[in-house]
Simulated assay, not measured.
Amino acid sequence: MKNTLKVLFALIVIIIISVLVLLNQHDKQNKTSDSGGKDTVQEKKKSDQQKAEEFADKMKPKIEEDLYEMDIHHFIKNITFKKEVTISPMGYIVVEGYINDEPEKFNFSASLKYRTNEISSMSYSYELSIRFRDWEKYKDEPQLKENFLKSLSKKEREQYLKDIGEKE
Rank of each mutant, 00 (worst) to 15 (best):
K105Y: 09
P142L: 04
R133Q: 12
N24S: 14
I119A: 12
K145P: 01
F75N: 02
E146Q: 11
P61D: 07
K51T: 10
E166H: 03
Y124D: 05
N107A: 13
L8Y: 03
K82P: 03
D48C: 03
V7M: 09
S109Q: 14
L144G: 02
E118A: 14
Y114I: 10
K154E: 06
H74F: 09
F108Q: 04
E64Y: 06
F55L: 04
K31G: 00
I16N: 04
H74T: 06
E156T: 01
I99D: 00
V7L: 14
E166G: 01
Q49T: 13
S111M: 14
L112D: 04
L112W: 02
E136D: 15
K162H: 08
E156Q: 12
V13G: 07
P89E: 12
Q143Y: 05
E166Q: 11
K51I: 08
T86C: 07
L144A: 07
V94C: 05
V19T: 05
F9N: 09
Y98R: 03
D163R: 00
F108E: 02
Y98C: 14
I14S: 03
K105T: 09
V19F: 08
I15K: 02
I119M: 06
S35D: 09
I87Q: 02
K105L: 14
V19P: 02
L22M: 04
S153A: 04
L8R: 05
G165M: 04
N107G: 13
E54P: 04
Y160G: 03
T40F: 13
V13Y: 01
D140W: 09
K28P: 01
A56L: 05
R131M: 14
L149V: 03
N147M: 14
N78H: 08
V7S: 06
W135L: 07
S47G: 09
K38N: 07
L22C: 05
V41Y: 12
V41T: 11
E53C: 06
K145Y: 06
S120G: 10
L23E: 04
N24P: 04
K2A: 15
N30L: 11
K145E: 08
E53M: 07
K162P: 02
K6G: 03
V7D: 09
Q159F: 01
L128P: 02
Q50I: 13
S88I: 07
F55Q: 02
L152V: 00
V85P: 00
I72M: 03
K83S: 13
E102R: 05
E118C: 14
K162Y: 00
K28W: 02
V7R: 13
L149W: 04
K154L: 07
S47L: 13
Y138V: 00
I119L: 10
R131W: 01
S121H: 06
E118M: 15
F132H: 11
P142Q: 08
L23V: 04
Q29L: 05
I17P: 00
K60P: 00
K155C: 00
K139L: 08
W135P: 09
S123M: 10
D140R: 12
E146D: 12
R115Q: 15
G37D: 01
K62D: 11
I119T: 10
I99G: 00
E166N: 05
M90A: 15
G97N: 05
D140Y: 13
S121T: 13
S88N: 05
E168H: 07
K139R: 14
E146T: 13
F148Y: 12
Y68W: 10
